[in-house]
């Protein structure tokens, strides 16, 4: 009996190790590839042997990659702020105020988050043209809101519903209006939820590709995913893999750190968005 249990333990740890390798290897391999330059790159290596930062230098010199990163940060920050402000207000009315068709409305919002992005592509393209936002960052912010708003509203509403009603009633008795209520009473209480939702919205905006690819034209306006996807060498068969890997590592590192620091919150936010529905 004892040896069987020990065997089971070993098997379990082997499984954990296998999953860890599977999850981390591509990233690990990108990191070691990014430090190998020139012809070094064209031999397969499993261990970090070389440490040549020239790929990193090349990424920033050969194209406006610093600018692309700044664009991505600006777009993601604006999207997070706007969608949090808008969805907090919406969550209040959806979670607290009773009105007819509330459930239907909630489900409509949820199904919007399941929209295929291409379905709004041409309509959005026209809208962005009309507003004169083509090839500009505000245009991307507007487009990204379609992706983030449905789930930020949904997640914040589920959190809002869990707050005790007495609190709200006490505040109303004390003469607080709806605005004070949202900003002074609910916001402090929902701090963790807001951080979680903000993080998820950030990741969505940071990763968004289709809109950014379609609504921008010049190198200077591109966000990071588009810049990396369109990186090419002298010919189609000569992709600068070292540079691509270096750029990938630069962009991925902050996200990995975010995940490691906030994993508990991300998990709770993801599951709140899906399971409680």
């Amino acid at each position: 009996m004892r040896w069987r249990r020990r065997l089971g333990r070993i098997g379990f740890w082997l499984l954990i190790a296998a999953i860890t390798v599977f999850a981390l290897f591509p990233f690990y391999y990108a990191v070691i590839s990014s430090f190998r330059a020139g012809s070094d790159l064209f031999t397969v290596a499993y261990w970090p042997e070389a440490f040549d930062p020239s790929n990193y230098a090349a990424v920033f010199q050969r194209q406006p990659f610093g600018r692309n990163i700044a664009n991505s940060i600006a777009v993601a920050a604006a999207v997070v702020t706007l969608s949090l402000v808008l969805s907090l207000t919406a969550a209040y009315s959806l979670g607290r105020v009773r009105f007819r068709g509330r459930t239907t409305l909630l489900f409509t919002i949820l199904s919007v988050s399941m929209f295929p992005q291409v379905a709004v592509l041409s309509g959005l393209f026209e809208l962005i043209r009309v507003f004169g936002l083509y090839n500009s960052l505000p245009g991307l912010v507007l487009a990204n809101l379609i992706l983030t708003l449905p789930f930020t509203v949904w997640v914040l509403t589920t959190f809002m519903r869990e707050l005790p009603k007495e609190l709200e009633e006490a505040a109303i008795v004390d003469g607080a209006g709806p605005w004070t209520l949202v900003w002074r009473v609910f916001l402090p209480l929902m701090g963790p939820a807001v951080v979680t939702t903000g993080l998820l919205a950030f990741i969505v905006a940071w990763n968004e590709f289709l809109f950014a690819l379609t609504f921008t034209l010049s190198d200077e306006k591109r966000t990071v995913p588009v810049a990396i996807a369109l990186m090419s060498g002298a010919s189609a068969y000569e992709l600068p893999w070292g540079n691509i890997m270096a750029a990938s590592v630069v962009v991925t590192l902050p996200v990995v750190v975010l995940v490691l620091v906030f994993q508990r919150r991300i998990v709770s936010g993801l599951t709140a968005g899906a399971v409680k529905g």
Partner: peptide, 30 residues
């Protein structure tokens, strides 16, 4: 372990596609 498992999810799709593209390279891929 949970954080490690979560990492692939957070990496932008475009970048994970590029990483795999390199790993699956016909001549120099791992």
């Amino acid at each position: 372990f949970r954080a490690i498992v979560l990492i692939p999810w957070a990496i932008p799709t475009v970048i994970s596609a590029r990483m795999w593209n390199w790993m699956l390279h016909d001549q120099f891929g791992v």
